[in-house]
Amino acid sequence: MKKAVVFFDLDGTLFDDQKRVLPASIAAIHEMQAHEILPVIATGRNIFEIQDVLDATGIDAVVSANGSYVQYQGQRLSAAVIAPDLLTRLTAFAREQGDPVGYFNNRGFRLSQATQDTRDNFKLLRLHAVVDPDWYRTQDINFLNVFNRDKEAQYNQQFAGQLSFVRNNPRALDTMVTGVTKQSGIQTFLQRAHLTGVKTYAFGDGLNDLQMFDEVTVPIAMGNGVPQAKAQAAYITTTNTTDGIVQGLRHFGLIA
């Protein structure tokens, strides 16, 4: 029986500013695992992007793509697939706006077009982006990036009740089936992994972590987090570059 479950966001949280997991954080995760405390990645990234993290930490539980794809012990627990007709309408609307779209599933991604913002975005993520505007027609798509800097209102109005748009960086909107969030992914994970009733913690820093914070027993904000995350947290640890993960885990007695 697991004593607790701890959810970790990646960018700005478990990752340092070079997109690496600090050695002290890896050691802390291994210590948790040895004491029946389950670490879970809860991220806006997709499974194919984080295999090196899973290998380094031994983590085998993931709420990915902001809840769109949930996996445990190598098995898919849930996957939210965006309907083909909805993808076609979103693609057409984005084309009218001049906005590139990134189409993602757990195996890979493609872009509708490349711009300076897409190049900058995927350089930061250390991903090689391939342009293939028709790729989505033959794939199950779980998650999208829509690239623009100020059009949340237009997209939310156009696709109300069908898709939700969350700005996770200045260049792009994370896009999910309406109702799919880190919170819903965590709910699914806990239910299907038979872990309901176990005390839960979460470390996060961004706007897409707020609903995750709503779901867990103890929300923990990184010192580098946005003000909204800090306001919602039960505890604010140090930053992602100064062993904030270790400090937060130690504060709550999850590691020695």
Rank of each mutant, 00 (worst) to 15 (best):
A92C: 05
R89P: 03
I236R: 09
A233I: 11
D214F: 04
D120F: 00
Q157R: 12
L163C: 09
Q139M: 13
Q113V: 10
D11M: 11
L190E: 10
M222N: 14
D243Y: 06
K182A: 02
E49N: 03
F165D: 11
L195E: 03
P100T: 05
A34E: 14
F213A: 10
N168V: 14
F203E: 08
L87Y: 02
Y201N: 14
L54C: 12
A221Q: 02
V70E: 00
T188G: 07
G204A: 08
A65D: 08
A65Q: 10
G248Q: 08
L249N: 08
Q191E: 14
P227K: 03
Q113Y: 02
R137L: 11
L22W: 00
A202Y: 00
Y136T: 08
Q33N: 12
G58K: 07
V218E: 03
F109M: 15
V218D: 02
A24T: 15
V81N: 06
E96N: 10
Q191L: 07
P23G: 03
A256G: 15
K199V: 12
Q211Y: 08
A256F: 01
M176V: 13
Q73K: 13
K199E: 15
Q162N: 12
I236D: 03
L86N: 06
D214W: 04
I50C: 06
F93R: 03
D134N: 09
T196A: 08
H251E: 11
G108F: 00
G244N: 14
T178L: 02
D11W: 09
T241C: 08
